[in-house]
Structures are given as structure tokens and as C-alpha cells.
Write a protein that binds this DNA or RNA. Sequence first.
DNA 1: CTTGACTCTGACGTTACGTCAAAGTCGCAT
DNA 2: ATGCGACTTTGACGTAACGTCAGAGTCAAG
Lengths: 291, 291
Amino acid sequence: MFRIGEFSLIAQVSGRLLRYYDEIGLLSPEYTDPQTGYRYYSAAQLPHLNRILVLKELGLGLDQIARLLSQGASSEEIRGMLLLRKAQITQAMQDGLDQLHLVEARLDQMDAFGQTPVLDVVVKAIPSQRYLALREVFPDVASVRRLVVHMTTIVPHKMPASSLGQIAFVVHSRMFDPDALDFEVGFLLTGNPGNSGKTPTAFQLSEERVLTVHDLPAVEMMATLVHVGSITDIHRTYGLLGAWVEQQQWQIVGQGRQVLLQLPQPGHDDAVIELQIPVSKAGTPYLQQDM
Amino acid sequence: MFRIGEFSLIAQVSGRLLRYYDEIGLLSPEYTDPQTGYRYYSAAQLPHLNRILVLKELGLGLDQIARLLSQGASSEEIRGMLLLRKAQITQAMQDGLDQLHLVEARLDQMDAFGQTPVLDVVVKAIPSQRYLALREVFPDVASVRRLVVHMTTIVPHKMPASSLGQIAFVVHSRMFDPDALDFEVGFLLTGNPGNSGKTPTAFQLSEERVLTVHDLPAVEMMATLVHVGSITDIHRTYGLLGAWVEQQQWQIVGQGRQVLLQLPQPGHDDAVIELQIPVSKAGTPYLQQDM
DNA sequence: CTTGACTCTGACGTTACGTCAAAGTCGCAT
DNA sequence: ATGCGACTTTGACGTAACGTCAGAGTCAAG
């Protein structure tokens, strides 16, 4: 029988580890002195410890190891766990590869743009949300702005303000053409989409313009980039976002969106707009609606 | 200004995350009401948050991100961190690949051996240790055993028992030849190797046999396998260990060792012996001494 | 019997948050 | 004015697998 120090020397593991495995019931010493609490391990426990160490090297968690060892697991169960672990490792390596590409892309960007602050494109999932808007083809940007101003002065007085969210555009134009902007313009609404009944489904803005409510579909992967500054510069930021998506070799699926997070104060160029482009990794095209 | 709930919706991160980043000083809201503690975020903080999220996706720790953002880091520093991170990912992927091979090897073993309990070869580093032993070519296993018995009856009375460790063999035979066993036989000694002065450097066992003290070199990678049972079966376990090393496509560097962890009780086949083979990954040959 | 070496339990630190819990706040509707 | 539901606050605990003390008890040799 070895005391914990000698046993830890033999096995080349720390004493703390042995105490820990004892505590969680993974490997208890063959004998524990009830008076002093001293742990005494037998040589025959070394194979047991070694099995634990090997399984740990395979990346299994201690809880799984405990299950495999204590309760006699059938070899089919063990096979299952190993196959699962194999899949996990494969997944982790794929993730590592993706991350490597991201890091390299950022390094390339730094080399190419020099001191220019690097873009921070964030890909995130966007849930479905209700949308009070109208669709129109605008002749120029100024008319869009006028409509926005008009809406912001009218709508909040006629709606429960609590459910009114940001102003957002949905860009239906295929390509950016400053003379024919096929946009949806309106408000994002808070509250669960789909549950109509409380809020009206339409809203008369003026003689010829009617806002209607519908749901914007959820998007699993939305590439987003925040534009700060003058609205007139927005197409440059948009181009950067597009270039980034292209560099990732992803596909654009569906319509882009623009969310006005901060209207520019008169005399300042401090608008904040989040540009959004729904994407998917190549090979898994997405439902394209409104085509 | 957005309250935390709305800001978390916009950015699609949890409120808890925002509070946490505030707590660790990574991203504090633009204004915090001193009365109520309510946090108010501005739209202009979204790019800041996005930068944090992107750097996090690259696998950087929050502490590193904080350094990069708060204290204006030069682009050279940033490059350095990204390059470092790249190396880390590469390393992690290599580790993943190794682990994948281990898992696959174990699956193959299970398929090949069926119900046979899989071997648990553990690779570990062995530190240098002092060794009181003699080298001899033994005509058979029985004579080795007689010497061991003799040593265990004589030596402990003449030595400070506290410094006496396990009995160990160093196998100098190139190949296993049961008629010419070129073994070192002796005791491992506790205490720092190299510091002689307290223990004698030699020990007269009998007329013609002298035990001398020297240091067994440290081994960075020692493949070990514990044999339990009759000593006469040990060559099979040894073969399994050798086959395992071969399957890993590693090289054997230096002499194997055998550490007697438990002498067999008379009438029982319950010896416990750890077999050790120093190895190195192919391509990085090791110092082979005693050649 | 006195050291010095060893061992015990218990607690805290690690990473980046998720998940309650109890109490305070806000805004809207009565 | 008041009540209510939705929101927010701080604080604490949990996560995985141990490393690292701290303070107190134990063992073996001289």
C-alpha cells in the first residue's frame, strides 16, 4: 500500500488530482484510515488510474469516464461514446479551421488597409419580428428621408408607443441604383410576431400611403455592419459589408435590411445605421421569398 | 439611449453579458443612473460591442480584448496577438488531429480484439532518479528472481529504509532472449538525484556482487503499461506495449525499464509491474546513451 | 520526544458567462 | 393617485477540472 505521495510519484499525477478523483468517486483509495483520513492506494489501482488517464486524453469528460468505468458499460455503449467523441473532435477541428480563416482574413485586412480601422462584421441570428411598413420605389434618397421624417412625426401619436421599435428599411433593389430605390420603409414592432389581434394590421399615413403590418422572417445568419456618420456615405459601408461576405465565399440569400438606430441630429453627421445582409454558407441556399 | 433590454435585443446578446462586460470594465454603458443603477447605452456603442464580439470569435480572451481596446494598442501589437493566436489555433488543430487518431486507434482495437479489455498505455514524463543497482547477464528468469529475493532480504537492513523505493530493472538486452538477460537490477532511491553525499555510492551485496549508485536519466516521453498477474506472462504484455508504440509510429529511444510495484505473494499470481519504454515522435531522435 | 516530511480538510481562483432570487423602477391604464 | 405588469438592479451560485495556498494533524527516524 502506498500513501498518496508515493502513489502520485509512481503515476506521475498530482496528489490533488488523486484527492479530487476520490472526492468525486472516480477513484477511491483501497483503504482510508478512518482515524486520520490518510489514503492508502494499492499497486493494483494503477491500471485503473491509467485507464482514467487514457480516456481523459481522448477528451472524454470525467462524468462520462465515471459512467464507463463504474457501471459496467457494454462495448456497444463505449463504441457509441467514442464515435460521438470522434464527431465532436471533427466538429471542433472544423471550427478551428473557420477561426483560422477569420484570423488570417483580419491579418490580411490589416496589411491591405494599413492603419484603417478594420471592419467589424458580426454574423448573428435575427428572430422574426413584426414590421409596420410600406413599399415604394423612391426616386432619390432625399424622398426616403422625407418619408421617414413624416412617419416619425405622425405615427408615434397614433400607436401605443411601447410597441414601436426602430425604423428599418428592407432593400428590394437588386443592385444599388440611386434613381430607383425599391425600399420598404417602416417601424419594427416589439412583441411576438404572428400574434396579431391587439395592434391594427394597417395604418393610414396619408391619402395615398398605407402602412401595413407583416412579419419579417427570421434569419439564421445575418451579416451585419454598423455604419456611423453621414447617411450619404452609407453605400461605402454597404460595399465593405458586401465585399466581406464575398471574401468569406458566402452567398447572399434574401433582402438586405437597414436599421436606423440613431437619427442624425440636425447639423451633425452622427447617424447610426446597422446594415444587414442575410447569408448562408455556400451549398445551403435559403428560401428566397418575394421573388 | 437604450435601456439594457432593448440594447441586448439590437445586438442579440444577453443582458447578463452586457452587465458582465460592464462589471469587468470592458464595455460600460454611456450613462448609468446613479439613483437607480439603470444602464443606458447609446447607439454609438454598438460598433464597440461588435468589435468585442468579433475579437471574441477569433478566440481571444476578454483580457486580451480589453488590452487591445482600452489602451490604444499599436497595429504591431495587434498583429502580434493575431499571429500568436494563429499559432495557438494551429497547435490546437494538431492536438485535435492526434486525439482523433487516438480515438480511432481505440475503436480499431475494440473491433479487432472484441471483448478483450483494451490496453491502457500511458505516456508520461519520468524525472531523473537515483538508482542503486548492478548490471549482469542472467542465464534465466529464475536467477533474476533469486537475486531480487536476496536483495530484498539484505539491503533494507543496511540502508535508511526511507530512501528506498521500488525495485526496478533496466533492460539492456537488444532483443528478448530468455537465455541472456542483460539486466540492471536494483532499487530506485528517493531524494534528489545528483546530490550524493549522504548515501553511500556503493553497497557490497555479496563477495562478487556490488551495487552502485548512479542516476537514471529523465525521459520526456515514457510509454508505460502496467502488467498484472504472473511474472511469466510479462513478455506478452511487453509485446503489446511494443506493438502499441509501433502503431503510433513512434521510435524507441534508449532502454526500457520495469518497475516492480508489487511482489507476488507466494502462491498468488498478483505481481504488479510497470513496463516502460522511452519513445519519441519520429523525426526527433533522442540522446541514446550507453551505446 | 522532537523534528522534518508528509497528509488532511477546506477554501479560493480560474473562464465567461447562464440561471435564479429578492427587491427596486418604469410607464401605462385606470 | 394608484396599481399592475414588464423591466432592471445587485448578489449569489453553478459550470470543469483541477492548482494553490492555509492551518492543523500524522508519521517515522534519530
